[in-house]
Nucleic acid binder design. Structure first.
Lengths: 244, 244
DNA sequence: CGGTGAGTTGAGATAAATCAAGCAGAGTGG
DNA sequence: CCACTCTGCTTGATTTATCTCAACTCACCG
């Protein structure tokens, strides 16, 4: 594991999505970091069921949380983008109830094993931020249940694409030709409870309807409002989020 | 709202499911409570989308969290039983992203509006408990996504019934003839993303297979192990949970 | 170049939805 | 005490969204 770098130089902190942090808090965060770790695409970052786990912040790259049934059926719970915390559940509950896998090469910022209790004891502001992030992630999963349970395939694919587009854009990944999109059709299928074949057909329809351009690992959405309508997806205004 | 009652006399605390609490913490919890409130079955405890919200502990009765699409399709996110916290998301995020409705008559214990920041500032142990409860609820929703996305109707119904059975039992509701079951088939359908008709047929099959007895608002599961097998449902050992 | 993973397309099968009707028990009001 | 209405449940018939199976293309890679 490489040594930690200077948090003040962290490129994420400059983004308007993230909340400002006091100098004291920043120092504490820096102090609790023990290093960064690169992992390659496809690597298992955290294995489900393991008792001892580590807390990370995703600095760069994409990942996802998932669960599997013992016969291999897999459900993706949500996708992780830069700024997301991972491993908190393993820290709090006895064992980590899900796995985390890297979708691209990722850069992770690791915390010391006692970082969480230390924050709660000495830095209530940061403790509250951690809880905020937990509540926020639960909101995402709530949305996922709604999609999988009550949206049609067409609707849930559209809603997922809009969601990812907005998230990636808020992490500063949007360009003229859309956002990077390292997700395969099978991943979309596993996130939405669909078969890969059907996912493919739905994507075709969205392409032919002129709603999206999706090729070469990039996603472009022409008319966001129209896609929102297709997906019955109206998101709540996003306040600034904390970054550890 | 009636005055708060003595937390030391709280019948829930006596149950083995709940973690012991120090005298100081108990006093702080008691101090932060401003009263109890009864609500009738079917009442909306918290409306989705509202900005100002209150934090409650469910003392008695059943409730559920849900989201709806604007055309009326409803998804139940999870069921709430005694000891569950409700309204935390509204406290942390700007607005409450889901609704909460009472299934039976409920008794709620209300906290003062500044209780959360106060706990985080002065009582790190309780703050950590709150975060534990948030992480635990997220785990439940993770399981819900897995059920809705990847289990068959038969499997997810079986898994839900086992889950509710265990939870109710751990809240001291189990008797010779099973547990109270105030949930209609439509609720089950909305929790699992199924139609009420299909839910009914699946329940018939479980009845005829001798797996469950379900009548008169009571649920009995003859062979838990067999039901677990049907639902592909193996839960992680439950450590003691905190109670606020 | 063979091999592998992602994506595509067609044909057919099926789990689950929808539509429709009817039944039983619990209230409610006359 | 008797209609009357409601809500929850049940059952049958039919439709449909989505899955499964299978084959084929294409790009990339060692």
């Amino acid at each position: 594991m490489e040594p930690p770098f200077d948090c003040r130089a962290c490129p994420l902190r400059a983004l308007p999505t993230f909340k400002a942090v006091t100098a004291a808090e920043l120092a504490a965060i820096q102090g609790a970091k023990i290093g960064q770790r690169m992992m390659t695409a496809g690597a298992t970052i955290l294995a489900g069921g393991q008792a001892t786990t580590r807390l990370y912040v995703l600095l760069a790259g994409w990942a996802f949380r998932y669960k599997t049934l013992e016969d291999g059926r897999r459900q993706i719970l949500n996708f992780l983008l830069p700024g997301d915390l991972l491993g908190l559940q393993g820290e709090l509950l006895a064992t980590l109830p899900h796995g985390v896998e890297a979708l691209t090469e990722v850069n992770l910022c690791a915390f010391a094993t006692d970082a969480v209790p230390t924050f709660f004891r000495d830095l209530p502001g940061i403790a509250l931020d951690i809880t905020w992030l937990a509540a926020h992630e639960e909101r995402l999963v709530d949305d996922a249940v709604l999609s999988v349970g009550r949206r049609t395939a067409m609707e849930s694919v559209a809603a997922l694409l809009v969601h990812l587009y907005k998230r990636a854009a808020s992490s500063g990944m949007a360009a003229e030709d859309g956002i990077p999109f390292p997700i395969t059709q099978s991943h979309i299928a596993d996130a939405l409870g669909l078969s890969p074949v059907h996912t493919n057909r739905v994507l075709q329809r969205l392409r032919k309807g002129g709603f999206i351009r999706l090729e070469g690992q990039r996603l472009q959405i022409g008319d966001l409002r129209a896609m929102r309508r297709v997906g019955r997806y109206w998101e709540q205004p996003a306040p600034k989020r904390p970054l550890l």
